[in-house]
Amino acid sequence: MKTLKTLTIAYTPDSDDAFYYDALETGLIPLPGFRPHFFTENMSCLNQKALQGVYDVTAISSVIYPQISREYAILNVGTSVGRGYGPVLVSREFSKMENLNGKRVGVPGIPTTGWFLLKCFCPDALMIEMQFDEIADAINAGNLDAGVMIHEELLYYPQLGLKCVADLGAEWCQRHDLPLPVGLNVIRRSLGTASMERICSGIRQSLEFSLAHSSEALSRVRRMGRGEAGQCTEKFVSMFANSDSVRMPADVREALNVLLCQVVDLGMSSEMPQLTIIEGMIPERIHAHKQVG
């Protein structure tokens, strides 16, 4: 029997990422030649571990890609894309970005795409790094004046009595007439081209299986994010696990180039990386191991 190669896959503890991998993680879709091991950590931790080269496949904030481009290629599956939306700046007291100059604003990691957008649009805010799901409570406790919402917090914050100051993702999209590639899925180059292509294809089939059996997949991933009580899983998954995530379209590739050029201009990287995108070969359809539903 051929020995299976261990493959480490890391994603955020949120419903959209869990939706991508549900069929692989539950064994409904196989990944021939590999034994995947899954890890969940918040985006700030995943960014740091990508810089250290810890995982074979990992979610990252798009803005850190120039720093890891020599070790990782971009997968053409699992991109989180905001079409007219993205990280949201919220507050209890303030209603305009210009009122936040010098104010304490929580950001879900430095660097993250949410932090990057705030730095672009409200550079004089005092940015305080916090875990993403603690920012809203810190605002309500008076420890922050405002904060950047990501993940399911994008939809949940009104239930906590907070108000939108600005949809930073929408602002970026409007200024550039492009969608916003908030997050990427990347893969270790040292796996080799054939393996990277095969893994990309397997992840795509997992996502396609979840989309085709969405009720069953959603019932399993509701444990993530704000959970059943949050009542935002289905809407959130539809925002960030969709056709843009199945295959990165041309306008998202264009947007990624624009975003990363801005990252270089901001001094986060010395040069614009060459974008290597693993397309995922299209083998014969891999059938599910068992029937669902």
Results as ranks from 00 to 15, higher is better:
residue 88 V to D: 11
residue 78 G to M: 06
residue 64 I to Y: 08
residue 90 V to F: 12
residue 126 L to V: 04
residue 78 G to R: 07
residue 154 L to Q: 13
residue 127 M to F: 04
residue 80 S to N: 00
residue 106 G to R: 05
residue 91 S to M: 12
residue 60 I to V: 15
residue 103 K to M: 15
residue 64 I to A: 07
residue 109 G to Q: 09
residue 135 I to T: 01
residue 91 S to T: 13
residue 105 V to S: 10
residue 131 Q to Y: 06
residue 147 G to M: 07
residue 71 E to C: 05
residue 62 S to L: 06
residue 96 K to N: 14
residue 105 V to E: 12
residue 130 M to N: 13
residue 109 G to M: 07
residue 62 S to T: 15
residue 139 I to F: 04
residue 99 N to A: 15
residue 137 D to V: 04
residue 140 N to K: 02
residue 114 G to N: 09
residue 143 N to D: 14
residue 105 V to Q: 05
residue 92 R to M: 01
residue 59 A to M: 07
residue 126 L to N: 15
residue 62 S to H: 10
residue 88 V to K: 15
residue 60 I to R: 10
residue 109 G to D: 12
residue 69 S to H: 08
residue 154 L to W: 02
residue 141 A to S: 14
residue 117 L to M: 14
residue 100 L to M: 01
residue 76 N to R: 02
residue 79 T to R: 05
residue 111 P to Y: 09
residue 136 A to P: 05
residue 94 F to P: 07
residue 78 G to P: 05
residue 150 I to Q: 03
residue 84 G to Q: 13
residue 114 G to R: 07
residue 61 S to C: 11
residue 121 F to G: 11
residue 74 I to Q: 12
residue 150 I to A: 06
residue 133 D to T: 06
residue 66 P to I: 02
residue 76 N to H: 04
residue 114 G to W: 08
residue 73 A to W: 14
